[in-house]
Design a protein around this nucleic acid. Structure first.
Lengths: 335, 335
DNA sequence: TTGTACGCGTTATCAC
DNA sequence: GTGATAACGCGTACAA
């Protein structure tokens, strides 16, 4: 591989000048610039990004930590992030955290050891305090889908409470009064927020969440099917179930069918996230849209703005969910 | 950040010795090793991976190019890859190729410019010749899901022909004789191979694929629904449809329902890939399993073996698909 | 506008 | 076993 030195030799200029035309910072005369460009061309020169990093102490790499690489959710997120950075000539290093504290901390350590210029973290298990401590170190980071007051300016998140509210309000508007709830793991803040939105919507109708109609799931399909079975087994009547995400809703749909119920004739089902398979369930899932790709993109922009000084970029920190009515919710039968 | 120099100073040894204990290659006396270790600990020393890379001309990074980051397929693949490399202390740089020639070549260029030690490529649009040329350059690479004779030792792929064969043979065994086929884009080799398998299975029963019962789709849900409509519109009777992937099968399922047909009562539907949502369609999709995560992992192992000399690792290059019977296929009605 | 010289934090090749 | 010291390829004061 040709080096900057060989280019300078061929072009008959000094090595510093070559460097200058590459980072067209300082003014270089057109004549010499062309000489250099031509020499580069001729040698098929490509800068060694590692040497650049060492000299400039910028790796031009951004570390991304997500819970999982598979599943319908994180792929969307990564798409938004990668596209934005690639266009800016930065590259993305990924690691998976698997929603476990040790693995997440490990992943962060790993990315840090890789000299990332910044981190984009979608972490769930790590403590607030850990992140606050981390914020005192050199490497800047953004938090996706998490709210920490002390770190408010680095958080990009969905208004989950509003989403939960919208879901349940929609069912109430359709006349439902006995609404069951299959929650996510309640140690996760988004799961809690969604449930709080649910409660607020109920309160607006002078209702309150019944304990018998609550089930704590795991955000996975099995949680949804188990949840539905438990709710049915409770004997407590309900005409609608809201699930804290689409995967559980899908599980609930399957379980309902297997137990001989028909959705939405026997009861309605609401999801949350609007992952892409939500359109392909049967019946098509009514849900709450989570603009995850846009949020990933926004996290990337935050980095571009804060770390790479691209000041022209605007950053939005809170995103609003909205309702996607489809076929899994019907009006409540008049009683 | 502490440097190796400060460690050497505190430990009272030379900088070279510190380097030695880090890469515990050469023998260092227990006494000095402990002194160094202790000094590292005390300073919270962490090696600068970029400087290491520059000096050793190894970036310890592997570039991954996939078609898309979202969707049910690539996420699985990345999971297998990331886990394997992370355990080996390597890191993964990702780029998306979007199945377009220019973007794919661009992505490869991008990864190359990042000084990756190796590349794992899942490319579809780039020509064989381009890859053959690439193989003559320095950076080694593996090809996932692609067979090129000249590059046979770098290919890790599924026996797509066998998969296509298994799918159709299963339907034949269930008594179906009029079998429609919704193919992937025929410029993709895997799409062609799967179709060839289909033909071979038919030939085994003295049958041949009818042109009226063939539709070329796009591997996406819309392709499946359009395909089914076209097949139905052809007027040609059939009792089963095999789709070249699960997403098209899902589209076909939805279209069938919307047009008032019942699967598998009116006709059976076969998928291919066994992506995770295949279990959550209605009816549950009978399909062919594609061990994509295992294959991703294997690609990572290839790199570990070939590039990082971890000779103890075994590499398997061809993977066999197998049948997953579920609910979308039934026996053909006796005629 | 252009060139010189040093530094970035390691690894690796010599000697000792 | 251990210590100098020269790379690695580039950025960047500072000087010219």
């Amino acid at each position: 591989m040709a080096t900057i030195y060989q280019v300078s030799e061929l072009a008959g200029v000094s090595l510093a000048t070559v460097s200058r035309v590459m980072n067209n910072n300082v003014r270089v005369s057109e004549a010499t610039r062309n000489k250099v460009l031509q020499a580069m061309e001729q040698l098929g020169y490509r800068p060694n990004s590692i040497a650049q990093s060492l000299a400039s102490s910028r790796s031009n790499s951004i570390g991304i930590l997500v819970s999982e690489l598979h599943g319908p959710f994180y792929g969307e997120m990564l798409t938004g992030i990668e596209a934005e950075f690639r266009a800016a000539g930065k590259h993305v290093i990924i690691a998976a955290g698997h929603s476990e504290r040790a693995t997440e901390e490990d992943g962060i350590e790993f990315l840090l050891s890789r000299n990332c210029d910044a981190l984009i973290l979608h972490v769930e298990a790590v403590s607030d305090q850990y992140l606050i401590d981390l914020s005192k170190k050199q490497t800047p980071f953004v938090l996706l889908n998490r709210q920490i007051t002390a770190l408010a300016d680095r958080c990009i998140s969905l208004d989950n409470e509003l989403g939960g509210y919208l879901a349940t309000r929609y069912l109430l508007e359709q006349g439902h009064r006995h609404i069951a709830y299959i929650a996510g793991p309640m140690w996760k803040t988004d799961a809690r927020d969604r449930f709080h939105g649910h409660q607020r919507a109920l309160a607006g109708y002078q209702l309150t969440a019944e304990e018998a109609l609550f089930f704590e799931g795991d955000f996975r399909e099995t949680g949804g099917s188990k949840g539905l079975q438990a709710l049915l087994a409770s004997g407590r009547p309900f005409s609608a179930v809201v699930c804290a995400n689409d995967e559980m809703a899908s599980g609930a749909l399957t379980a309902a069918r297997e137990l001989g119920y028909e959705v939405p004739a026997d009861f309605s089902v609401m999801g949350f996230d609007n992952v892409n398979f939500a359109y392909y369930t049967y019946p098509k899932l009514s849900t709450i849209d989570y603009p995850v790709s846009a949020m990933g993109q926004m996290a990337a922009r935050w980095v571009l703005q804060q770390v790479y000084q691209q000041s022209s970029i605007e950053v939005q920190q809170i995103f609003d969910p909205h309702l996607i009515p489809r076929d899994s919710v019907a009006e409540a039968a008049v009683t």
